[in-house]
Simulated assay, not measured.
Amino acid sequence: MVSVGDYAVGKGAEAKNRVRLPLNYQLATRVQRVRMFGSVAVDLAWVAEGKTDACIMLSNNPWDTAAGVLIAREAGAIITDIDGTPHTMKARATIAAAPKILADLVELVAGAEKDADRAV
């Protein structure tokens, strides 16, 4: 089960959401369930607790992610930016998962980005 971040709204939402649609399609065809809880804190805490296997947030604010990233890391999750580099407070995205599936998720997000680029 993988949770994903909310769709963007307001000014610039269309551009921000162009990767989210192919990402949700890619996830829906590969994982048991895709969930959108609406809170990155909940998403990361549930990864830490093992209620979900991973979470993917495509837009970040450090005040939204800082506590959850720490909790998930302490529980053994690996948290990266969209390109698979270590997550920092300046990261563009947050991908958190167990070490065994993280590389697959980073690859899946990269594929969704390519699909979105082709659709433009």
Rank of each mutant, 00 (worst) to 15 (best):
T29N: 08
T88Y: 01
V69L: 00
V42W: 08
L23F: 12
F37M: 10
K114V: 08
A97V: 08
A66E: 09
K51F: 06
I79L: 04
V19N: 02
K16R: 07
D115F: 05
W63K: 12
V69T: 07
V40C: 03
D53V: 10
L105I: 02
I79R: 08
W63P: 00
A77H: 07
A116S: 12
L58P: 04
G76I: 02
T65H: 06
P99A: 10
N61E: 04
R30M: 05
S3P: 11
L102F: 02
Q32S: 10
I101Q: 06
V47L: 00
V109L: 10
A54S: 12
D53G: 15
A72T: 07
Q32G: 14
N17C: 01
A15C: 00
A13Y: 00
A77M: 12
R30S: 15
A116D: 04
L23Q: 11
G38K: 08
N24F: 05
L21N: 06
G111F: 04
A45S: 12
D81G: 08
M1D: 11
A110T: 03
V109N: 09
I71H: 11
V109F: 10
R20K: 09
I71K: 03
I82G: 01
V34F: 01
T29F: 01
A48W: 04
L58G: 00
V31I: 12
V31K: 06
R118K: 13
E49H: 04
V106P: 03
S59Q: 15
T65N: 15
N24P: 00
G50R: 13
A41P: 01
F37S: 08
K51I: 12
V34Y: 13
L44T: 03
A28W: 10
E14F: 02
I82F: 07
A8C: 12
D43L: 06
L70A: 09
V31P: 13
L70G: 02
D64I: 06
L27C: 05
S39R: 10
V42C: 06
F37T: 15
K114W: 14
R35T: 10
D83A: 13
A41I: 09
L58T: 11
A112K: 11
D64Y: 15
A103C: 02
V69W: 02
D117E: 13
I78C: 00
D43N: 15
N61V: 01
S59K: 09
